[in-house]
Design a protein around this nucleic acid. Structure first.
Lengths: 329, 329
DNA sequence: CTCTGGTTAGAATCGTTTCCCAGAAAAGCG
DNA sequence: CGCTTTTCTGGGAAACGATTCTAACCAGAG
């Protein structure tokens, strides 16, 4: 049985007939799962029954029937209550995530019942979320009040993966991330700036080359961030090293650290305007070519996007033009 | 008299913070979700009913009741069949995920019914999976035939996150990853080696300093990998730059690229033995101190681990000793 | 023997399915 | 063009099946 158990997700045929599996799948129902969780929580069938507002005997029957149906013992019946077996623990984990999912369904559908007309799941990296999405999405919402967006932050690589797997419809990632089989569109460009205290030797400069900053301590973003990766690489190219005092998660944290005199930071220009403006810090534009970065929109298949997602996609794609390219018409 | 009206005493102070939500959650059941998916797939209620082996009117009723319960329209009823509304699409997505989960439950419980005694979910980084886990786990399975392990590959940072969130019980990540609130144990150490073609100028060397390799083109791992990060940093420290021709995902791909004369590669020693041995390549040990790396086991709370997970944890922790530390007995 | 906690039995109840049919909209056909 | 046929979704009554309830029973610990 060696490594067979390592998750091999063989893509079965469309809806292959699952001979015995289907029969068992049908014997699972949410009420049973809910009760099962209650019993696990309380380690006591009677209390679980009270909590769920149902007779204890009914709970007992459900648990027994379930065990019988699967030929599995979920609990050890002790005189003091019920204790999970390993099989029970396995079930508990899956039951929890399943019910969590069901709650999501209820919440989302309730929103629709209260007038929401569409839902779009999005993944985006930090730069996009901090700099552009708030305004773009709020502009979008003012035109489409009844739409909702579920936005989650992920590093660019995970964004691509999430879109590929269908976890979300629209993703925004760094232009350097491999988009593999996905369709990609230009979204925005930003420019990295150096963040320094007002009393820093570099504070009076108008613009800089990254190499000029390498004589000072740096505050870095977390290691998976593309800014961190890119600046490390640039330091290497310059034949110098970057003196990192600390790595923090998020642009605001970078600014705080800069404020606390831990070093200088490197963040996108718009991010500085948003999170660092009121902190008495200075931002200095980087002239290096790589400091001008692209953010891209990725989708699995633009042609088959849901109408709602398409609205969002079109809006995001159109968002930049008024600011930079004059529309020729 | 529906169930709501039978609200006799039952003071549920326990946890009733979801007044309306709970009620709605209870109106969702898996049969309805399954039927709903069938209707979406077929875009036709009658065919969906046939496929599920049930009367069409029953399906119709379920769909209508469901829509009524949530005050939502899921389908546009066309004369040619049923077409999803945005609300329907949202539901479809979640319904698919939920049913997939339920199938996992059925599969896993079936395994238990066929004798499996325990299940452990693991996350590990690539280095661990390629180098050590196959042997360690297979040794483990030969001692515990009736246990199962679900192993998924993730970059070290995501491993930590997954363990924190309870997505898995045991994680293995780079020693450099921040383990935050997790408990961490030593797992193994490996040593990076330089992979070169047999006809490469460095091929005859017995050992190297990383700095010696910087005059040659490199084949890099994907940007999130700790090897890539670490070697970039080392190049910086050495005051040189690393000339990267290409980044690839996986040790075998690195070796293939080296074979194809794209440059030299940097991978762990054991990984070379496993994936690069038969490719006519040479591996040269790196003497740099940082090239000796640690892999760590992380868990959320070793004291409260399930008995099955504990077996795995103990096995993994004990795995290295026979090779390095002689047991004093 | 008493308390806690789980299980069983039988009756009442509730929900679901089925069957049959109606209405509505295309599609086929003279 | 009008008529019939097909296809599809919805509605109602009866039958069936599953779940629940009450009440009693059982088993171990203190």
């Amino acid at each position: 049985m060696s490594l067979e158990s390592i998750d091999l997700d063989a893509p079965h045929h469309q809806r292959g007939p699952k001979p015995a599996e289907t029969a068992l799948t049908r014997r699972i129902d949410l009420t049973t799962l809910r009760l099962f969780i209650a019993v696990c929580d309380e380690q006591n069938l009677t209390r679980a029954a009270q909590r769920e507002g149902i007779a204890a005997s009914a709970v007992s029957k459900r648990m027994n029937d379930f065990e019988l149906a699967f030929g599995v013992t979920l609990f050890k019946r002790l005189s003091k209550g019920m204790a999970l077996t390993p099989a029970g623990e396995a079930l508990l984990h899956h039951a929890r995530v399943t019910l969590l999912n069901v709650e999501k369904i209820a919440v989302e559908l309730s929103e629709y019942s209260q007038g929401v007309r569409g839902h779009v799941r999005m993944l985006a990296n930090l730069s996009a979320i901090v700099q552009f999405l708030p305004e773009d999405l709020s502009a979008f919402f003012s035109a489409h009040e009844l739409l909702r967006v579920d936005l989650q932050e992920r590093p660019s690589g995970q964004v691509v993966r999430g879109i590929e797997e269908g976890a979300a419809a629209i993703g925004i990632c760094s232009g350097e991330a491999e988009t593999r089989s996905l369709e990609a569109f230009h979204y925005r460009t930003d420019n990295l700036v150096v963040v320094v205290r007002a009393d820093h030797p570099l504070a009076k400069r108008d613009h800089l080359l990254f190499a000029d900053t390498l004589d000072f301590d740096h505050v870095g973003l977390h290691a998976a961030s593309s800014i961190y990766l890119r600046s490390q690489y640039a330091a290497t190219q310059a034949g110098k090293s970057m003196r990192l005092r600390i790595n923090v998660p998020g642009f605001e944290a970078v600014c705080r650290m800069v404020q606390a005199n831990m070093g200088i930071g490197l963040i996108p220009d718009r991010a500085f305007e948003v999170v660092g403006a009121g902190m008495g810090l200075r931002s200095i534009r980087l002239r290096d070519e790589w400091a001008k970065r692209e953010l891209r929109i990725v989708v699995r298949d633009a042609a088959h996007l849901s109408s709602t997602s398409r609205l969002v996609l079109d809006h995001l794609r159109a968002a930049e033009r008024p600011e930079r390219d004059a529309v020729s018409a």
